[in-house]
Write a protein that binds this DNA or RNA. Sequence first.
DNA 1: ATGTGGCGGGG
DNA 2: GTGTACGCCACAT
Length: 593
Amino acid sequence: METKKFVLLDIDYVTENNKPVVRLFGRECGNSSAEPIIALDKNFKPYIYVIPNDMHLCIQQLDEMDIKNVEKLTKKDLGKKKEIIKAYLNHPQDVPKLRDKIRSLSEVKEIREHDIPFYRRYLIDNGIFPMAEVEVTGKCVSESSNVSSKASAICIFEMKEPPKHLESEFPDLKVLSFDIEVRNPKGMPRPEVDEIIMIGLSSNFGLHKVISTADSSFDFVETVPSEREIIKRFLEIVNSENPDLIVGYNSDNFDFPYINDRAKKLGISLALGVDGSVLKFMRRGFASAAFIRGIIHVDLYLLMRRYIRLDRYTLERVYKELFGEEKKDIDGDKLWKYWDEGGKKLEMLFEYSMDDAVATSKIGEKILPLNMEITRIVGQPFFDVARMASGQLVEWFLIRKAFEYNEIIPNKPSQSEHSRRRTERIVGGYVKEPEKGLHENIVAFDFRSLYPSIIISKNVSPDTLIKKRTGEECYTAPEVGFQFLKEPKGFVPSVIGRLLEERARIKRIMKESNDPGEYKIMNVQQEALKRLANTMYGVYGFSRFRWYCIECADSITAWGRDYIKKTIKKAEKYGFHTIYADTDGFYAVYKGL
DNA sequence: ATGTGGCGGGG
DNA sequence: GTGTACGCCACAT
């Protein structure tokens, strides 16, 4: 038996002998030349929760269905203790196959946690976090230099015990950014006819180049004989450098699909994965996501849309917003002319290609740390986290917390429940339309984390919401009149409370820190905690969420309106006239008494 | 007011 | 893959 420590980058499962085998992908921390590790766990079983009418009869019915591996458990369901059944199944795919049948058993009141993807379940139940270190115990089963088409060595490790989470430093990861150029003389590039002419690469490990079929006097240009060789060279670089992350700009929907289409046409297998698997695409609703096993592909376009509010999200616009510098741009419709003309124009095109890859790199450097930190808190794979909306982030964070607090996770709303919820309207924050004119000597006031504070101080949570009045002490929301128990502390208020405490703790340490590197990391950590706390309110008001609670959402905004109105009134007594107010802050001018 | 359709980014 | 989902705006009715 030996142990290995590595940064957890990616996770999935494969099926062996009809049993799931979880695979953890990672690389030894702080050693950029270390080989990738794939740790296998054959001992994690899929399960769902069954809430029975009668415990004994229900177990009998499950037994008749050939579900013999069951455990009795006590869990909380929105704070209420319940005796439930944890029913193990053989394979994750048995869950969608069998759940309807289980649900319809006469002794089954409800089934729960039947739609948590297996790898997510694994992360939650084992308390391990992507982008943080894990320690595994077992043995290395192969130190192969030839797994499928992989050029480099890889360690395959068989785990004998569950993995352990290690409190670890922020990992130093190898990040490769890329960007392709296409010769498209007619409208948008069409992969059937328009060839790739350049692939620009930039990284934080010294690799900066443009691979192309054209010659150049620039040192950063590597010339190869054909488009086929451009793609092969790209593959070769990824396989030999083993970056932890690959970033692109709109690469989910353009660069990777395009490379994929061209590779198919040229008969190249895009074996980019750490396990030798090919580039895959996952349909995620309206969009698609490009996926490389064992390497995290992040599309920065998606992150930027979440990170800053802009009218447009072109690479140029985003770059200017973040760095204040203009980036030279070539009109997409004319790009092919630069290529065809050659000479000076071609050199400009090379510069543009390199520039785009570098800009992508720089944007990545700027926003990846925050998102990695969010990943370390939410505890789902970075690939997923980088594609989740803020509400989903909060929901998956709460799902993890629910496991820690021994709470059963609420089910997702059914289609009909979802449409019912959509008809419910929540009154928002208080807005006072701004007074026209140029105002001088303005004072600004705003509440710090207004909604999170209300949730905590008024204990606003679905499990503390009073449905029928008893004599217990409670908080009553203004206007709407909903009531919340003072004790015990609700699930969501507890979780937000812990987030804000942790943030305060980090901010305290920051004040005493004189190490700029450490300071920067802690600043990102507290920022991530703040963002998560501030979006927590959303889970109550978004119709498709598990913790939807319109009474909670309505009460929070009602208290918010109450607080700001009272504050404005108080300011008036001291001679301040408010000229504009919105939700959690206002601007005023001093008029005197 | 309500419904439907298209689009974002990329070259 | 314990799949399958956005949110906004323009335009029409």
